[in-house]
Amino acid sequence: MVNIAFFVFAAILLASAVRVITAKNPVHSVLFLILAFFSAAALFVLIGAEFVAMILVIVYVGAVAVLFLFVVMMLDINFQELRQGFLRYLPVGLVVGAILIVELGFLAATQLVGPIEAAGSASAIPPASELTNTQAIGHILYTDYVYAFQASGLILLVAMIGAIVLTLRSRKGVRRQQIGQQLDRKRDEVVALRKVPTRGGV
């Protein structure tokens, strides 16, 4: 049963990955990409890496959804036409949803039988009662691969700073905050005391 589930998930993953780059409609490409992520997460669950599977679903599926939202906003898509064409995308959405449900069913059935064991790795992996999957990943990540982990963090920091610098443009008519001028202001320039008569208002 486990072997059948592995080949099913792997075949769906390969097919959806091919459809991501061959589909002409970007909406279909994103749907197939989400399907590929779910299939890869199912493969991780089969080998006992539940933490990696959840990170794959939460981070990548969430990031793809946010990225797709940004792309839609940047392309200035007419939402009225998009709502009118909902029925065109409904069959593809139903197919992807049905495949996801079947995958979840396979996954639940294989967990009832028992998780697959990697060949030759039984001696290297401690029992689950002694060390959880998350603890094992954290131990390896912050001991054996700590320098690679820190280097990847620095690369992401440089990429974030580069993206900010590239998108930061000075345009005419846009007022920007001047911290130095705000700190150099005197009290008389920004505060005005007025004597308001009783029941007179401002």
Rank of each mutant, 00 (worst) to 15 (best):
V18R: 00
G173R: 10
F51I: 01
G114I: 03
A151R: 05
L168H: 09
L141A: 13
A118E: 09
G153V: 05
L141T: 05
S170W: 11
V165G: 05
S29M: 03
G162N: 10
L56A: 14
I101Q: 01
A10M: 05
A122I: 06
A98P: 01
L154G: 02
R83M: 09
A49N: 10
A11P: 00
Q80A: 12
R185H: 08
I164H: 10
D144W: 03
A63W: 02
A10Q: 03
L166A: 13
E81M: 08
E50S: 14
K195G: 04
L183I: 15
L168P: 00
L168S: 11
L35P: 00
A109N: 07
L35A: 02
S29W: 04
L157H: 01
A15C: 11
L154D: 01
L82V: 08
G97R: 11
V146Q: 05
V30C: 11
A53R: 01
G97W: 08
F44L: 09
D184Q: 13
G97V: 09
I47M: 09
N78A: 02
N78V: 01
F68K: 09
H139W: 04
I34F: 03
S39V: 02
L156P: 00
L112E: 12
A124P: 01
A151E: 02
I164C: 10
A23Y: 06
K186T: 12
Q135Y: 02
S152N: 07
D76S: 07
A128E: 13
R185K: 15
Q178A: 13
I21C: 06
V92S: 03
V18Y: 01
I125H: 06
G105Q: 06
P197L: 11
A124I: 14
A124N: 11
H139P: 00
A49Q: 12
I77G: 07
R83V: 03
L183R: 15
I101A: 12
V61Y: 01
V95N: 02
T167Y: 14
